[in-house]
Amino acid sequence: MNKAVVHATVDEFWYVLKGQGEIWRNNGLKSKVTKLVAGTAIDIASGTVFQYRNIANEELTFLCITMPSWPNDTEASYVDNGKWIPTV
């Protein structure tokens, strides 16, 4: 499970290809967990804190598109207030 992250300027769009997971998103007004299974499409607006995890014994595989394109190494910031305790 990864650390919780927030993006400064980009939105992300995910499409799950295989596996099973969960993603937690918190935009400051609403916090929710969404199941990630093949065929699931989600969006993550800039400024939204998010964290995801694999919940099965197979790889969680997804496509990730950012809009606009990824600007630089300072785009993503780790945050301490994630949903789950990170393992990586």
Rank of each mutant, 00 (worst) to 15 (best):
M1S: 12
M1R: 08
K3H: 14
K3Y: 09
A4L: 10
A4D: 14
V5Q: 12
H7Y: 07
H7G: 06
A8F: 06
A8R: 15
T9W: 02
T9S: 15
E12K: 04
E12L: 09
E12D: 14
W14F: 13
Y15A: 11
V16Q: 04
K18W: 01
G19Q: 02
Q20D: 02
G21E: 04
I23T: 06
I23W: 02
N26P: 09
N26R: 04
N27G: 02
G28W: 04
K30V: 10
K30C: 05
K30M: 07
S31L: 03
K32D: 15
T34Y: 04
K35T: 03
K35F: 00
L36F: 07
L36D: 04
G39S: 03
T40V: 06
T40C: 00
A41E: 07
A41C: 11
D43A: 12
I44F: 02
I44K: 03
A45Q: 08
A45V: 12
A45W: 00
T48Y: 01
T48I: 05
V49K: 15
V49P: 02
Q51A: 07
N54P: 03
N57S: 13
N57E: 11
E58P: 01
E58G: 06
E58Q: 12
E59V: 08
L60S: 07
F62L: 15
L63H: 00
L63A: 14
L63F: 15
T66S: 14
M67S: 13
P68L: 12
S69M: 11
N72C: 12
D73Q: 13
D73Y: 08
D73V: 10
D73E: 15
T74W: 05
E75K: 14
E75I: 12
A76D: 13
S77T: 15
Y78M: 11
V79N: 05
D80R: 11
N81I: 09
G82K: 09
G82M: 08
G82D: 07
I85Y: 01
I85E: 12
I85H: 07
P86Q: 09
T87M: 10
T87I: 14
